[in-house]
Amino acid sequence: MNDTVADGSVAQGDATAQAQAEAEVDAQELLRAGAVLPPGTAGGGDRAVAMFTQAYRHPGLDDRIVVRLVAAGQGGDLGTGFLGLEPEGGPVEVGLGQPRALGFPEWVLVHHPWDGHLAMSLVEEMNAVARTVKSRPKRARAAYESIGERLAGSVPHFLPTFYEQAGRVFL
């Protein structure tokens, strides 16, 4: 028998490598599920990015603070500025996570802020349709198609993100 195996050093090294590999797989599974891992966590993979919180205030909310979780490089302040929220302090790194694609209406607020009022006016209607997807999927689909037809005439650049958001609701 090999001396390194007899004293356990190689076996211990294999166990450590296996434990690290398992931890990396666990971290990647948690990230895919939407978790935010503590800062400095190893094994996040190449899709993991720093996640930050940013505090905001609004005159209509008295002393309450709104906190938003944003992935590094996602430009979180553009949409919040449209809503009248003012940043308080700087962003604080809270961990590692996977970036999430901007949905509707966030994408419009970031890329077409001058049309933000139109996108925001659809939010309540879209939420009402989303609540019916499980119980009446055909009716929900017809409602989304009706909204899409209205958008096609006035703001066709909304359509890709609008339909992507509708698809997410069905998934």
Rank of each mutant, 00 (worst) to 15 (best):
R139V: 15
G44M: 02
I147P: 00
N2R: 08
R32I: 02
G167W: 06
G13E: 07
R139S: 14
L122V: 00
G116M: 02
V169S: 05
V94C: 10
D77K: 09
G116I: 01
G81C: 02
P99M: 09
R150N: 03
A140I: 11
D26I: 04
A119I: 01
S154Y: 04
W107L: 12
T53L: 02
V110D: 09
H111K: 09
D3H: 08
G8K: 10
K138Q: 10
I147V: 13
A33N: 07
F162H: 00
T16D: 13
E88M: 11
L151G: 01
E149G: 02
R168H: 15
A6W: 14
R139W: 09
D63E: 11
L102Y: 07
V108K: 00
Q28M: 15
P137L: 03
E164H: 11
R131H: 04
R32M: 06
L30E: 06
S135L: 13
T80R: 13
V169M: 05
H111S: 09
K134F: 11
P105S: 10
E124L: 03
A130C: 05
L151R: 04
V36F: 05
E125F: 03
V129A: 04
L171S: 14
A23K: 09
G76E: 00
H111L: 07
M126L: 09
A17W: 10
W107V: 05
E149W: 01
H117N: 13
D62T: 07
G75S: 10
A50M: 07
L102I: 08
V94N: 03
F158L: 03
H157I: 05
G153W: 07
Y163F: 13
E24N: 13
G13I: 02
G153I: 03
D3F: 08
R57Q: 12
T132V: 01
T80F: 15
A71P: 07
V133K: 04
A27F: 05
T4G: 04
V66S: 03
A33K: 10
A142F: 05
P113A: 08
D62S: 10
V5W: 15
A11T: 08
Q20D: 11
R68Y: 08
G40R: 12
R168E: 15
G76V: 01
L30F: 05
G44C: 03
K134N: 12
G44D: 01
R131K: 10
G44H: 11
A55R: 14
F158K: 00
G13T: 04
E93Q: 15
Y56Q: 01
D63T: 05
Y163E: 06
V123H: 05
T132W: 08
V123C: 04
D46M: 04
D3I: 07
T53V: 14
E164K: 12
H58Y: 01
R47M: 11
S135H: 11
P113D: 02
F52Y: 15
A35H: 14
T16G: 06
G8C: 08
P39Q: 09
L109F: 07
A55E: 13
L61C: 06
P87A: 11
L118N: 02
R100G: 07
T4P: 00
R64S: 12
L31E: 00
L171F: 06
D46W: 04
Q54W: 08
